[in-house]
């Protein structure tokens, strides 16, 4: 398991509803999220959408400009992780237990990639998530994701 999220609790206002836009300013602008420059796009009760702009140094093949698939994994990891806190209404420390991606088609050269993470079920310790990535039209997805996050105690948070 990867404790892969910044310590957000100190940065999130107390007694305030979870704000994905605010949290992305930390997760999406710091470390690996900052390298990929993840942007907040929107959210609902149980979903969060983020986006990454195409960049030459993020491609898998210089001839085609197709985006590296791992960029989509990182995007879906952050979007699904944030969808749990959004559904919960507050931050809780958690790590990714597993994540699966089905690649329906490549993300083409120059295209911005969007990742929508959805938390479809929550238990005391597990967040069940799914999601999809697209290039601007959610009806034309390029990848589907599913996974689970496990809540961790203060010891590793």
């Amino acid at each position: 398991m990867t404790p892969n999220k910044p310590d957000l609790r100190s940065a999130i206002p107390k007694n305030a509803a979870f704000d994905p836009a605010l949290v992305n300013k930390l997760m999406g602008k710091f470390g690996h999220g900052g390298f990929l420059d993840m942007e907040y796009v929107g959210h609902g009760n149980d979903w969060v959408e983020l986006a990454i702009d195409w960049r030459e140094d993020l491609v898998a093949d210089p001839d085609t400009g197709i985006l590296a698939s791992a960029v989509v994994i990182s995007l879906m990891d952050n979007a699904t992780s944030m969808s749990i806190w959004t559904k919960l209404g507050e931050f809780r420390p958690q790590v990714t237990m597993d994540l699966r991606l089905d690649y329906l088609r490549p993300s083409p050269s120059g295209a911005r990639v969007y990742g929508r993470g959805i938390c479809y079920h929550l238990t005391h310790s597990i967040g069940f998530v799914r999601g999809f990535a697209h290039n601007g039209n959610p009806d034309d997805p390029l990848a589907h994701a599913s996974g689970t996050f496990i809540r961790v105690g203060d010891r590793v948070s």
């Binding site: 990867t2 999220k5 310590d7 470390g31 990929l36 994994i73 990891d77």
Partner: peptide, 9 residues
Amino acid sequence: GRPGFLHGG
């Protein structure tokens, strides 16, 4: 990812 740890991606 979180300070001091690798990002899962």
